[in-house]
């Protein structure tokens, strides 16, 4: 366990915590971007260069910007003034999240000796990934393309301005 791992995970967890705890929603998205960047650095630490840079491109470049746009389009004057930012049932939600973390942490630590621990560094090039995407994973890739097209069309139709229907 290197010092870099502790530093990056502390940054990532702090970004995640800030993303769910801050009052201003725009600040939340900025904190979320920090968490995404930390995760990309963790991917790079794990020698997954392609996944790390895909994370930066897709999450920081696209998803965070999309969330910012959605926030600016749905400015809610009521939320910003008073009325706590947490829902009425926040105690239950917090208890459920703590219980989930307790179970997962216990499972990970209890099974630690049985987990695989290869020490050799995998040398996977982008060429190999592209090759696998075009041969063994061609069917999932095509299905994914279809899914993304359907998702884009669906999102546009759902968010499109409704025509005023005459009754």
């Amino acid at each position: 366990m290197s010092f870099a791992f502790y530093l990056i995970s502390a940054l990532t967890v702090a970004g995640g915590l800030a993303a769910v705890l801050l009052r201003n929603i725009v600040h939340c998205v900025l904190a979320l971007t920090v968490a995404f960047a930390g995760l990309a650095l963790l991917f790079l630490q794990l020698d997954a260069q392609f996944a790390g840079f895909a994370q930066i491109l897709i999450y920081i470049g696209a998803v965070a910007i999309l969330v910012i746009f959605a926030i600016l389009l749905t400015r809610d004057p009521q939320v910003s003034q008073g009325k706590g930012m947490f829902s009425r049932t926040w105690v239950t939600g917090l208890l459920i999240a703590a219980a989930v973390f307790a179970v997962m942490g216990w499972a990970v630590l209890a099974s630690a000796p049985a987990l695989p621990n290869e020490t050799s560094t995998p040398s996977v090039t982008v060429l190999q990934i592209g090759d696998a995407l075009m041969s063994r994973y061609i069917l999932p890739l095509e299905i994914l393309a279809l899914l993304l097209t359907a998702a884009i069309i669906g999102a546009v139709i759902v968010a499109m301005h409704e025509k005023v229907r005459s009754k």
Binding site: M1, M85, G93, A97, A98
Partner: peptide
């Protein structure tokens, strides 16, 4: 190292779950 990454992932997952269950927006 794997245990460390799994614990960080569990922590992030729980933070996300807490956020999804408790925030109003």
């Amino acid at each position: 190292p794997l245990t460390g990454y799994l614990v960080v992932a569990a922590l992030l997952f729980s933070i996300g779950l807490a956020g999804a269950l408790t925030r109003r927006n």
